Computed example of a mutant assay.
Amino acid sequence: MRDYKFRGKRIDNGEWVYGDLMTGKNPSITWWKPVGEQSYEIDCADVDPETVGQVFDFGDKEENELYPGDIIKTVHTRASENASSDDPFSNTATGYEEYEKVGLIEYHRGYTFGPRLRWKKGHMMIPNTSTLWRMKAVKLGNRWDNPDLLEG
């Protein structure tokens, strides 16, 4: 079942909050806050609209939730000049090496809709969880708290 959990960065103190999205003059996130051993009350905070995002249906290899604006590291394989293998799709044969890329996850609204991983050069749509797991994806941070991760 689809999870309708949202996150946003509070305007008043810059903390991240997670819960349900309420729209109005300013977007707000509401959540259940424990106030006793088995009792809760609803809390609410205005959030920066730029930071609001809905959790994706997949996580990284460490099972961290991923939201639009998250920065992840992925591992890829490329063949060197001396690669040799009877299997052209093998990445474990002699001459293949791994390299890392850092990219931004976003929700793409263009000729296709859905989650997209964007690197400095290029991008790819993310059709399912196994795509990120095969790339050994790990969440590093997000573009608001860690913009330096996208540099270089």
Results as ranks from 00 to 15, higher is better:
E97P: 06
G110I: 07
G103L: 05
H108G: 01
W119P: 03
G122R: 09
H123Y: 15
G103W: 03
V102Q: 00
L104V: 13
T92F: 06
N91W: 02
T92I: 09
H123N: 15
T94V: 11
G95D: 04
M125V: 11
N91E: 05
A93Q: 09
A93K: 12
Y99W: 08
K120I: 13
N91P: 02
E98M: 03
E97F: 01
S90F: 01
I105R: 01
G122F: 06
M125P: 06
I105P: 01
V102H: 03
Y107N: 13
K121E: 11
Y107S: 14
A93F: 04
Y96R: 05
R109F: 11
Y107A: 12
Y111A: 12
L117D: 03
A93H: 15
T92P: 05
R118Y: 10
G103S: 00
H108Y: 15
H108N: 08
L117P: 05
E97G: 04
V102W: 00
S90Y: 08
G110F: 03
E100A: 13
Y99T: 09
T94E: 09
Y96A: 06
K121N: 15
M124F: 13
R109V: 10
R116T: 14
Y99L: 04
G122C: 06
E106W: 00
E98S: 02
K121L: 01
T92K: 12
H108P: 01
F113W: 12
L104E: 14
